[in-house]
Amino acid sequence: MSLMGTREIMEIIPHRQPFLLIDTIEELEPGKRAVGKKCVTYNEPFFAGHFPGEPVMPGVLIVEALAQTGAVAILSQPDFKGKTAYFGAINNARFKQKVVPGDVLTLELEIVKQKGPVGVGSAKAMVNGKVAVTAELTFAVN
């Protein structure tokens, strides 16, 4: 059973369809970590052009889904209620396998460093237990 569905996620982060890229939050430690899920379907708008005949979820959108998962973790803290988490940097992103329609992405982000409204998260996206993407994401809350 999920901790949060789309409605609860939208109460924390400002993203909306078609740019809300997480479906559920499965685990949450506010200010520390979050685990989310994204069920990738043929109906995703980006598949129309990426790529016709061979749909592949763009790597940058997987990174965005990871960032949204991290935003739920950081913005769940009472001090940041109603604020927005912005990208500060993306470092060491590695794309290890394709994500295609029918896949369920497990999105994990752990906050490894935070000083005031700025922090760094260690992110990992997996499909069926296999790593698809890893990255280090820096955020700034405003």
Rank of each mutant, 00 (worst) to 15 (best):
A67T: 08
K130I: 02
V120Q: 10
F47C: 06
T6C: 11
L66N: 10
N128W: 01
G129Y: 00
G116Q: 03
G82T: 10
M1K: 01
I13K: 10
E44F: 02
F139Q: 13
A123N: 10
V99N: 02
R16N: 00
K130F: 08
Q17G: 01
R94E: 13
E108N: 10
I25E: 09
P117A: 13
R16P: 00
A93H: 12
G129H: 05
V127Q: 01
L3S: 13
L109F: 03
V127I: 07
E8L: 06
G116S: 04
G129F: 02
G31Y: 05
L21C: 11
I25N: 08
V104S: 07
V133T: 15
I12T: 13
N91C: 07
V118L: 12
Q97A: 10
S122Y: 06
I25R: 09
S76F: 05
M126V: 00
F19Q: 11
K115C: 04
E27W: 09
G5C: 00
G119Q: 11
T6N: 06
K113S: 06
I12M: 10
Q68G: 14
P30D: 11
K115N: 08
K37Y: 05
F80W: 15
M57W: 03
G53H: 05
L105K: 06
T24N: 10
I62D: 02
L137G: 13
N92D: 14
P52A: 15
T134F: 05
T24C: 07
